[in-house]
């Protein structure tokens, strides 16, 4: 299998690595990595902002957040 390693796997590995580096540079130049951490906040909005837990056991939802008493 030696020939295989040198003739095929090695060039492929080089190709793969360089395309990864290229893609990384490309995306970085297009500003896709700027403000990267902002992405983590994309699941929150005005309705359910950061700082508001959204899941509770039945009947355990804090009263302050939903001011109306349960019927």
């Amino acid at each position: 299998m030696d020939w295989f390693f040198y003739a095929v796997a090695l060039p492929m590995a080089v190709l793969f690595l360089s395309s990864t580096v290229y893609a990384f540079c490309w995306s970085s130049q297009r500003g896709q990595l700027r403000a990267f951490e902002k992405g983590a906040e994309s699941i929150f909005d005005d309705e359910e902002p950061i700082g508001k837990p959204t899941d509770f056991f039945p009947g355990k939802m804090p009263v302050a957040k939903t001011p109306v008493s349960k019927s």
């Binding site: 793969f16 395309s19 893609a23 490309w26 995306s27 297009r30 896709q32």
Partner: peptide, 17 residues
């Protein structure tokens, strides 16, 4: 949406390997 093609391509390559 702008990163979708790149993500897709990489996903493809990962399994292709």
């Amino acid at each position: 949406m702008n990163r979708a093609p790149l993500i897709f391509l990489s996903i493809f390559f990962a399994l292709a390997l």
